[in-house]
């Protein structure tokens, strides 16, 4: 067995241990229903921030419409599970596929833009998706979609999250992922090295959208009702904050970012009047002292105490 496989296996075991502990605490009644829901939301947000990181952090394409793809996955899946009584997995796959298709179709024209222009275009896209959903009576319009079966459980979100993280980790460590990173670093040089830049930008965008759609499907089945107002531009912005806070181009950063932001806003739920102030202050301070985010382009394993987790780069020193 080679080092890479051993490493993957170690991460998998680590994931299972975390799952076992949290699940045990949940079943043992040590975690109340409020935190139970929040742990599920944290896992969903990790999927969202990791997939957004693939677009914004690794490929360097500034997207502000991630909640729009989540909404697509959300609504496609609830139609299937509620109206057609399909199992959750079918809803998740269909939601992911629908979001991926939309991401691919929209990515082709918009990814010719760069920087600020792409941000504005994707921002508009997210809003268009939300407003279109709001005007479809079949899914309840602005009032929301009701009667959704409560199917999302902790094992579902946790293992979907694990699959997402493994997928993105392996993707960025392949020639396809390196092509995306090359585009971020220098698009002209990437083209001169034989990389079809448009293709890889669209690929990253599509994969990111697919996982956002899957996250949307999981999100929808946490509650009995979903509403288009959950997918405003503020929601997209919130995912962007997680990515930037954790560090662009760092997968462990995305996990940390999603965890910190979600846990912080949950912990402050009892003091709603101070919540936004503390939240904003935390962000300002972080950007002041660590503008590259908590991790900033490197993984947790680049730091000394955690280096044992990654043996593939053993010959580094």
């Amino acid at each position: 067995m080679n080092i890479q496989r051993k490493n993957d296996l170690m991460y998998l075991v680590l994931g299972l241990v975390i799952f076992g502990i949290v699940y045990g605490l949940m079943e043992g009644g040590m975690i109340g229903s409020f935190w139970k829901l929040n742990i599920i939301i944290i896992c969903i947000n990790i999927i969202m921030s990791a997939s957004l990181n693939l677009i914004n952090g690794y490929t360097g394409q500034f997207s502000l419409g991630h909640a729009g793809f989540m909404a697509v996955g959300c609504y496609v899946s609830v139609i299937l599970t509620t109206n057609f009584h399909m199992p959750l997995i079918v809803g998740m796959l269909a939601g992911g596929a629908a979001a991926a298709l939309l991401g691919c179709l929209i990515g082709l024209p918009t990814l010719r833009l760069n920087g600020d222009y792409l941000a504005i275009a994707t921002l508009g896209l997210g809003e268009i998706i939300r407003i279109v959903i709001m005007n479809i009576n079949y899914v309840g319009g602005a009032a929301g979609f009701t009667g959704i079966p409560h199917l999302t459980t902790f094992p579902w979100v946790f293992f979907t999250m694990l699959v997402t993280l493994f997928f993105i980790k392996n993707f960025v460590n392949s020639t396809h992922g390196r092509a995306c990173i090359a585009i971020r670093e220098n698009e002209i040089a990437a083209g001169a090295m034989g990389i079809n830049t448009t293709k890889y930008k669209v690929m990253a965008f599509t994969i990111g959208a697919a996982f956002a759609g899957i996250a949307g499907a999981l999100f929808a089945h946490c509650f009995y009702i979903i509403n288009p107002s959950s997918f405003t531009f503020m929601a997209s912005f919130n995912y962007l904050i997680m990515v930037v806070l954790g560090g662009l181009g760092s997968l462990t950063g995305s996990v940390a970012g999603a965890f910190v932001v979600t846990a912080l806003s949950a912990a402050l739920a009892s003091w709603p009047e101070f919540r936004m102030i503390i939240y904003a202050l935390a962000l300002i301070l972080l950007m002041f002292y660590r503008p590259q985010g908590l991790f900033g382009y490197v993984e947790l394993t680049a730091f000394k105490p955690f280096r044992f987790l990654d043996r593939t780069k053993g010959g580094r020193e």
Binding site: T175, R178, A179, M193, G194, I195
Partner: peptide, 12 residues
């Protein structure tokens, strides 16, 4: 490594 891109055969 990036420049080997075009000669890689494995798929996504």
């Amino acid at each position: 490594k990036i420049a080997f891109h075009d000669h890689v055969k494995y798929g996504l």
